[in-house]
């Protein structure tokens, strides 16, 4: 079977890709997709640790991932509503141009 560290490295790579997209892209929707990828990387970690734990019958990792998916769905709904509200106000989804709060 694949060792635990391979899953952890894969999860770290997905997290880094999501982080790179969230930090460098201009479009707010792509930033949100990057955040979703980062959340998914964390979920993969939870499942991998659960599979390799000493007491998998406790189901802790599975429960954590189920609640995490629920929170991610709520976060996506609110985030996209915010993006639509910003688009209506500024007529853009470019995060560089939405800078009214910049000091």
């Amino acid at each position: 079977m694949t060792p635990l560290s391979a899953y952890l490295i894969l999860s770290a790579m997905i997290f880094a890709i999501g982080l790179a997209g969230a930090l460098t892209r201009r479009n707010a929707i792509i930033v949100l997709i990057g955040i979703e990828l980062m959340l998914n990387a964390a979920n993969l970690n939870f499942i991998a640790f659960w599979r390799f734990s000493e007491h998998p019958e406790a189901l802790t990792g599975i429960m954590f991932v189920i609640f995490s998916i629920g929170i991610a769905a709520a976060e996506a709904a609110v985030g996209l509503a915010l993006i639509i509200a910003i688009y209506r106000h500024y007529k853009t989804t470019n995060v560089d141009e939405v800078n009214s709060l910049r000091g």
Binding site: F15, A16, L19, A20, L23, T24, R25, R26, D96
Partner: peptide
């Protein structure tokens, strides 16, 4: 396609992935 401060994003990402790995 990329925001004006993309170089900082890449630096932060490389640092984070390096630390994790």
């Amino acid at each position: 396609l990329f925001s004006s401060s993309w170089i900082w994003g890449v630096l932060v990402t490389v640092a984070v992935f390096g630390t994790l790995a």
